[in-house]
Amino acid sequence: MAIINVGVREIHCKIVYYGPGMCGKTSNLQYIHSQVPREAKGDLLSIATETERTLFFDFLPLDLGKVRGFSTRFHLYTVPGQVLYERTRVAVLNGADGVVFVADSQRDKLQEDIKSLQELARNITRQNKKFSEFPIVLQYNKRDIPNALPVPVMDKYLNPLHWQRYDAVATTGVGVFDTLKAISKLVISKL
């Protein structure tokens, strides 16, 4: 639930990057952090294992400055993707206003994508929210790899609800800002 704090004229929104392990959630945040102007971003906070796998979450606060007299802040989070961390994902998802589902385009990862999306649906529903109406943007990441699944195949299994969908190569930044723009606008439209 977004917060509109009229007293101090601030708006806060929470966006969570969700998806299976190693799909590129953290890469999205790292790229955003590397490109957004200094005055608009806070530090990128990562709670990760020694091998740089996300253990709890990554957190990147973005400050969009004043819009019509209100300071607007987007807080971006990632969840840990590994299957065993489902409870942690539930904790991070708490109070999210929108979700970017990052799917791995590798042929042998489709099953993990599907399972992760099913889990997301379950966890959103458990927060008493209607999954079909929840703000979600889909990102098909790793489009540069040779064995990437064709987009229509991924659509068939991952996008029956016809969310906005973007092809991406998060490590080089392709599609990262298109995705962020789409989810930000979607969240703002539902304030």
Binding site: Q35, V67, V176
Partner: peptide
């Protein structure tokens, strides 16, 4: 507000 916000998003969120 929404239109102004969308303009700001377009301006800020880019490579």
């Amino acid at each position: 507000f929404r239109t102004s916000m969308e303009d700001t998003i377009d301006l800020l969120f880019r490579d």
